[in-house]
């Protein structure tokens, strides 16, 4: 997502320098050890790096643990309803292309109740960053199976194990026409997480980032192997991809993948596994908020149009 500046303060030099603390809201009340804390820190760092004006930045969320996100930042926030972060953020961006817009969703939000919006948000390709904080479980409502819960993993609604094979958010996103940025990162790889958010923010279009996120209460076992054994994680590397030296040093399994190759991206995503990196990137796709942008008007312009219309309907 690139900040487009059309309405106000174009080119105005900031007269203050924002530090990470300037974006900090109240102390986050997620559980200790929750992966959401890591994402919040990365977001604050991103805001500071790009010196985004707090008043011109909007974080939109749905409902769930991760959707508390906007409350813990000092930007404008919209803590919406379950599954609907994307329509709200689309509306914000359509009305105000000058604002930087982020949508924060959980796996229930994005992949279950809000799945229709997810598919269509990818199609619209509105300039914004969408973060899927995927802990493979419904946390806030206390351990119900989500669309990404691994098959066989027990929950309070499916105590004998999740019945269905999990949905693959990457392959779903890559399957939608007009996908333009699809990446995966993990809360326990903070450098890679930051580098991914940075690439997503710089992308022109709808940047979809799935963040593998630990839930220490309900799904502590799910990512344990990957966290404890760096060899279990594979990092996608390419000159056009996301590059982070620390991550690449820790995780020595590298896979060369050209993110401009959609078919290769789809194949990689379909294989599953614990892969971090940029799966697909095409900054040339049309962005709905740009395609639909119409010139501004003065009240006099509008009155002229109305008069024309009334003439057409004159008796």
């Amino acid at each position: 997502m690139t900040a487009t500046c059309t309405l106000t303060d174009c080119g105005a030099a900031p007269d203050v320098e924002y530090s990470m603390d300037d974006y900090a809201g109240p102390v986050a009340r997620w559980c200790p050890g929750c992966g959401d804390h890591s994402v919040l820190s990365a977001a604050q760092r991103l805001l500071a790096t790009h010196q985004m004006a707090p008043e011109k930045t909007v974080f939109v969320s749905g409902i769930g643990c991760s959707s508390r996100f906007p409350h813990y930042l000092r930007t404008y926030g919209f803590h919406g309803i379950h599954g609907r972060a994307l329509p709200i953020s689309t509306g914000v961006k359509l009305a105000r292309p000058d604002l930087d817009v982020f949508a924060v969703m959980g796996d229930g939000d994005c992949c279950s109740i809000g799945a229709a919006h997810w598919i269509h948000a990818v199609r619209y390709n509105v300039n914004m960053v969408a973060l899927l904080l995927d802990n493979n479980i419904y946390g806030l409502t206390k351990k119900q199976t989500s669309p990404t819960t691994p098959q066989g993993f027990p929950s309070n609604t499916q105590p004998r194990g999740s019945i269905l094979p999990p949905m693959n958010p990457l392959s779903v996103t890559l399957g939608v026409t007009n996908a333009s940025f699809v990446a995966q990162t993990a809360d326990w790889a903070p450098q890679h997480l930051y580098a991914t958010l940075d690439a997503a923010y710089r992308h022109r279009g709808f940047a979809f980032v799935r963040i593998l996120q630990r839930c220490p209460i309900w799904t502590a076992s799910l990512f344990r192997d990957a966290v404890q054994d760096p060899a279990k994680v594979e990092v996608l590397v390419h000159e056009k991809g996301i590059h982070d030296a620390t991550t690449e040093a820790i995780h020595t399994n590298h896979l060369d993948h050209d993110p401009s190759d959609l078919n290769a991206a789809r194949a990689l995503a379909e294989e599953g596994g614990m892969r971090l990196g940029l799966f697909f990137h095409d900054p040339t796709n049309a962005c709905y908020d740009e395609t639909r942008r119409v010139p501004g008007y003065t009240p006099e312009d509008r009155i002229a149009i109305l008069k024309r219309e009334l003439d057409r309907h004159a008796v």
């Binding site: 919209f78 609907r84 994307l86 329509p87 689309t90 509306g91 359509l94 105000r96 229709a116």
Partner: peptide
């Protein structure tokens, strides 16, 4: 804006209104 469903249609309107 023709949204993907009735819910998104009002959601987009609310987002725009929130944004001024």
């Amino acid at each position: 804006h023709q949204a993907e469903d009735e819910i998104a249609a009002v959601g987009v309107a609310i987002g725009a209104s929130f944004a001024g």
